[in-house]
Design a protein around this nucleic acid. Structure first.
Lengths: 231, 231
DNA sequence: TTCTGGTGAGACATCGGACCACTTGAGGGG
DNA sequence: CCCCTCAAGTGGTCCGATGTCTCACCAGAA
């Protein structure tokens, strides 16, 4: 095993064992390198890797720290990974979303505070009728993000956030606007909100299933048509 | 933005844009470093990070390649992340599993081939009555892994695989054996298998919900008791 | 002809040292 | 008491050299 991988494992072990608590500061690179028995260059490779997945937080001129290790932090690296999938597996991601998000909506209908529900409504209301594509996407992301967070389960929220990668979402919206389905989507958003506000988990779940399932069905048709047109 | 992060983005862009296809070989470190305008050391940090999340595959003496980018590869980095969560958020992960896995079981009841179902039965049957803890865990992991894979959705399968981290699973099984619930768990596994074999998605889903929900409930009680005992 | 073993080129692995850039906090000046 | 300056500490980046591994090529034996 390369020394770098070994270093990754050792740092991970230090964290899992509790020697390094969340928020703790690591020894300076030179010292840690000596302690782990490798050069500073190799150690930096390990630190960089752990930094990419948000386990470590390096601050130039200050030091290297263990992050909070909160699930949302660690899981947001998921978005980075999802970006690599453009066409082929986007449907599979959407399918997973169709499973998770309705469940999240049902949980949100029980768990969300009245204030949060009101804010969710504000998000939808803030969208003007002649919004640009970027605004549509941003608004859509914000709505679904708050919905997921409203489930009360941070892991579920982050997971949904991650697999709803901006890239894939942008492509879908581009297609939807072309077909003039923007208004229908907004109505579905509104219906989900109403169901949550009425504290009806079953309705919230059903509407979310309809919402995601509709996008899924449309995308399935689009990809199929594009595939046959190309093939 | 540090040059290393910049390099990560550029390499990612090269892959997403199609300039580097899955399986393609990257230019040698020296050349790529020059092209991206940084030193070999800094480039290596970027490569190491992308290698940790299974986007690049570095082979000493040969070269650096883009992986297949298959979702199972990319998502298995998830397991690494989950390992950092011991007590606090394990319940949230289990809750997500309780949402995903029943859906996967239902899909498996429709999609799995007769051969795969037979193999799934073999897995359960291969467990002896006086199996050790390690054998129990390994068998349990194998069963759930095949079940998730049987859904036909690679993303779903890998996601389930990732959040069912070996660490958390081991701790749960240790507790279950102490309470003598091994036999009940095995019966539930058997029931899930029977439902799938009978091509009954509804039954498979229900049994899986019962199975995961039972573990969840038990764990919730255990953690609560431990917490109050400590607090 | 085919298989085997050696050999060398090419690629990544690792190292040590040097210098740059940034953050922070102490200490002096207003 | 507040603000500015500056020096120490720490990560950021680079260079050049050496070690090690993989693979392809080729000569020699079966």
């Amino acid at each position: 095993m390369p020394v770098t991988d070994e270093a990754i494992e050792k740092i991970k072990a230090m964290i899992v064992s509790g020697e390094l608590s969340p928020g703790a500061r690591l020894p300076k690179e030179a010292d840690l390198a000596e302690r782990l028995g490798l050069s500073r260059n190799s150690l930096r490779e390990a630190v960089k890797a752990l930094s990419l997945i948000r386990v470590l937080d390096v601050r130039q001129g200050d030091g290297t720290y263990v992050t909070s290790l909160a699930p949302d932090l660690l899981l947001d690296a998921l978005g980075f990974v999802v970006d690599f999938h453009q066409d082929d597996t986007v449907l599979e991601f959407l399918e997973v979303r169709r499973i998770l998000e309705p469940a999240a909506a049902a949980m949100a209908a029980r768990a969300m505070s009245d204030e949060d529900i009101a804010e969710l409504g504000t998000v939808l209301a803030s969208l003007s009728d002649d919004a640009s594509l970027d605004e549509l996407i941003e608004n859509d992301l914000e709505f679904h993000r708050r919905l997921a967070a409203g489930s009360g389960n941070a892991v579920l929220g982050s997971l949904l956030d991650g697999i709803s990668g901006p890239t894939a979402r942008a492509r879908i919206w581009r297609g939807l606007t072309e077909e003039g389905a923007v208004e229908r989507t907004r109505q579905q958003h509104r219906a989900i909100l109403d169901a949550i506000a009425a504290r009806r988990p079953d309705l919230a779940q059903a509407w979310t299933t309809v919402h995601i399932g509709g996008v899924e069905q449309w995308l399935r048709g689009t990809l199929g048509a594009a595939g046959s047109a190309l093939g």
